[in-house]
Write a protein that binds this DNA or RNA. Structure first.
Lengths: 351, 351
DNA sequence: ATGAAAGCGCTAACAC
DNA sequence: GTGTTAGCGCTTTCAT
């Protein structure tokens, strides 16, 4: 890196004060005179001084950086969350370091090691491999506080869970109230918590509404971004095809819409549809698609607040008692738009 | 951060060697005996030693980190590039720090300052505001080498441009060869280079093929991710509607497909279509969509190689002559798939 | 309120 | 090949 970079020493010399005073003036400490602050700031500006981050964090033991390890940034939902989070944390002077692991265990492990040695102030993690021993050990040994996003790890950790049960219950009730009897779920067959919970919650919600659980109505393409096209075509070609569909809002949704369009079915006349998680590309769809979604602004606020609270406690080094781990159930919001209507068969007699 | 963290001093003591030897052993230096290496590594492992990154980069003046500033990570194209880049750089021991600015000038400026003071080894930037004075000044004062991605800045800088002209020429020739006379372009009306160049290149390509430039065929929704639905509906409802469409592969593409589906038009029977940049959500579309795309794997390799070359030169501090700035024209690849065919009117007489 | 001095953990330069 | 030492740029005591 540039050797000609200005240091705080240069600033102090130019301002005619000691090194310590310059530091205090720049970091807004208590015991500095107005005059000193002014002179130091002028000197810093004229030298275009920028503090050296490595030196600062070596000494102060704070990197002012928060790390995120998400399983797949290509997933627009994570991308959106990251965007909000970054904007939110930046306001407190924190930078966000992201590490994307593409659902690969080895990348998750290397990533965790790297993040650990960089001594970030805190971490937000959503590893794909919740039950891997090495990964769990690594997390446990992490020197900084960390927050888990919708994963059920082996280790006890602060976690924000998404309320899949509540969310899917809301959607199924909505369909049931409209008179739908046959409801399908199209979602990735992932092993991680969101995948597992969505399927379980869907079945539970059906039972709670006295609806039959028809396993054929569960369309489970292997990965979160892969195509559900063929499966949806098959499902919707059946004689007793579902009249309503709950669809995961990633690539699965676009291929489902594609299949619906190819079959010439109309939404909501022939088929009602609710997406889980509003994918960006769908927000202008015609007709507007009813969505079960997470309020990412609220979520990123909650994450930030929790993190800062933990960071605060951590300042006093070994505090008396470790606080109980956070276990927050974060709600989904159901936004009814134009993609749901009563099923045809029910409407017909009324005509 | 944890105060009980092990340092290299602990490792050296346990291994029974000096601090310097421990350091050399761990960083794979030249002059260390096999025996020392083994003992130090054993000691490090048993202590669960992790080097302190701040100390290391303060001393060695290298952060082993490369920063990216992209205008919008929510754009799946950037997300994909970042993913490949991260995997590529990780292999050389580099971490990738991403900063997402959502096309906001103030975030770009703050971001650049933060990245600068963290003394990253190199930067990859694609700012939305190419011609902003403050942003250009900031770039010029950057202490580390940086690479610009498809932007025309005021300052001279290493840049990889995408070959929009070559790419669009290829697509228009393809359509012309199939017999299309009326070709439309649907793309965001962004002020940044990709937006500008795409439009200009499209017009040039039409002229080169003796096709009329019909301004009404240019559909320009305001932002790269916004909806083109209404505009595409209008365009395709016209009597002399285009028989072929070139569509930007972001949210614009999904809303265009949505419009086409609502109008009941079939691809490629009623309308041929090529997307620019394969959005992830479209890779399984039926019919498969012909695409003008960037080879992100190759691109990330070129970026990495260029960066390491610049880093190499930078080691020798002020080298004799600064090398001429890189101005690389990066090619598009045209992948013909199933979404293009001769126009109907031309086929009819043949029947 | 200010200056002097220590030292964060590490690597690089130098001696042997 | 190894140990010793200096010092990266900064914040934080500790005097005054």
């Amino acid at each position: 890196m540039a050797s000609g970079r200005r240091t705080i020493k240069d600033v102090a010399r130019l301002a005619g004060v000691s090194l310590g005073s310059a530091s205090r003036a720049l970091s807004g400490a208590e015991n500095v005179s107005e005059d000193t602050i002014a002179r130091v700031q002028r000197a810093a500006a004229s030298l275009r001084y920028r503090p050296n981050h490595a030196a600062r964090s070596l000494r102060s033991r704070s990197t002012k950086t928060i790390g995120c390890m998400f399983s797949d940034m290509t997933n627009p939902l994570y991308a959106k969350l990251f965007d909000m989070l970054e904007a939110r944390l930046e306001r407190q002077g924190y930078m966000t370091l992201i590490s994307n692991t593409s659902n690969q265990l080895d990348r998750e492990i290397r990533s965790l090691k790297l993040l650990a040695e960089r001594g970030l102030d805190a971490l937000i993690v959503a590893p794909a491999h919740e039950r891997n021993r090495e990964l769990n050990d690594l997390l446990q040994q992490l020197p900084m506080p960390y927050l888990v996003l919708d994963r059920e790890l082996l280790v006890k950790a602060d976690t924000i869970f998404f309320d899949h049960a509540g969310g899917l219950a809301r959607v199924v009730e909505h369909f049931a109230a409209l008179g739908h009897k046959r409801i399908g779920l199209v979602t990735a067959n992932l092993k991680s918590r969101p995948g597992r919970r969505r399927i379980a919650a869907f079945k539970t919600a059906l039972r709670a509404n006295d609806l039959k659980v028809i396993d054929e109505n569960l369309v489970l393409p292997p990965s979160s971004m892969s195509s559900a096209f063929d499966d949806v075509i098959k499902l919707l070609s059946r004689k007793d095809r579902p009249t309503a569909l709950v669809v995961q809002g990633t690539g699965v949704l676009s291929s489902t819409l594609n299949a619906i369009s190819v079959l010439g079915l109309r939404i909501p006349d022939d088929l009602s549809l609710v997406s889980i998680g509003r994918a960006d590309f769908i927000q202008h769809h015609v007709p507007a698609i009813s969505t079960l979604r997470v309020d990412y602004e609220r979520l990123s606020n909650e994450i930030a607040e929790h993190l800062f609270e933990r960071l605060g406690n951590n300042n006093g080094h070994s505090s008396r008692k470790p606080p109980p781990p956070l276990r927050r159930l974060f709600p989904y919001v159901f936004e009814e738009r134009a993609s749901t209507a009563p099923p045809r068969k029910v409407l017909a007699p009324a005509l």
